[in-house]
Design a protein around this nucleic acid. Structure first.
Lengths: 136, 136
DNA sequence: CTAGTTGCAAAGAGTTTGCATGGCG
DNA sequence: CGCCATGCAAACTCTTTGCAACTAG
């Protein structure tokens, strides 16, 4: 894949670092903008959105659309390996994100491919439901 | 649950019928608006959005946020029963929606509840991937 | 120096809201 | 007739785009 962004800038470094620091979360563009405004290093909306787009195109981060707010969330992809059998579950009550590394899920994937001829894309899929805490 | 809408109007009847006729699809608000504009029975945006909201609140239709367009999709709920072990899979290439009525999926649900203490909400979850046709 | 990057403001989608008018019961 | 529903336009949120100024290499 060709390289999409060529120059190294302070803004890009900051955005990517912030995504790496929050690898366990789904970060929105708004959150990134707000974070750097607080830090007295404001980055413009357009820069944030444009850079996020190219990171997605380069497969460095993942993009989800949140069910609750109908807005985009981004997450740094640590390495392509873990992604393979790693689902995300999001609580519709508290919004927390859970990581599901589990054999059972890979079985489902295989089953759906064999029986229903559909190749699941784990990176694009978020399972919604209610978490432990919120069930009580 | 209390009744949210009280009067029967032509607009509401039309919207609900359209949703029922397209039970196998995920319909957007825009599609509803466009459909009735063509039919020479235009319904205003606000009416469509407001009525869809109340149908969702009454659990008569389901609301999804589409990953591709980050906009809301709606679908009539035929009956609460089929919903229980019925997942939706959407192809990221062609956008077609597939209905998955399958034992294997119920197993996953059970497993995730028991082992990971997370109660999946099938109605809120759409599995993304690539369909048979688009794989070729 | 030159092409890529930034920031601003304006434009766009999709959705919500306030308010006067209209219509169901 | 009273209350609810409708339609319109304006407001709102999230995101994209055009353009001039800036900056990394």
């Amino acid at each position: 894949m060709e390289k999409i962004f060529k120059y190294k800038t302070k803004q890009r470094e900051n955005i990517l670092n912030y995504l790496k620091e929050n690898i366990q979360k789904h970060i929105t563009a708004e959150e990134i903008i707000a974070h750097f405004k607080e830090e007295k290093n404001p980055i413009s909306k357009s820069t944030v959105y444009r850079y996020l787009d190219s990171l997605v195109a380069e497969n460095i981060i993942r993009k989800y659309i949140s069910q609750e707010r109908a807005s985009a969330c981004f997450q740094y992809i640590e390495n392509q390996k873990t992604c393979t059998n790693h689902y995300h579950m999001k609580c519709i009550k508290c919004g927390e994100l859970f990581h599901l590394d589990c054999e059972e899920v890979s079985k489902l994937e295989e089953h759906i491919l064999k029986t229903h001829s559909f190749k699941l894309d784990i990176c694009k899929t978020v399972l919604y439901g209610t978490c432990d805490k919120c069930l009580k």
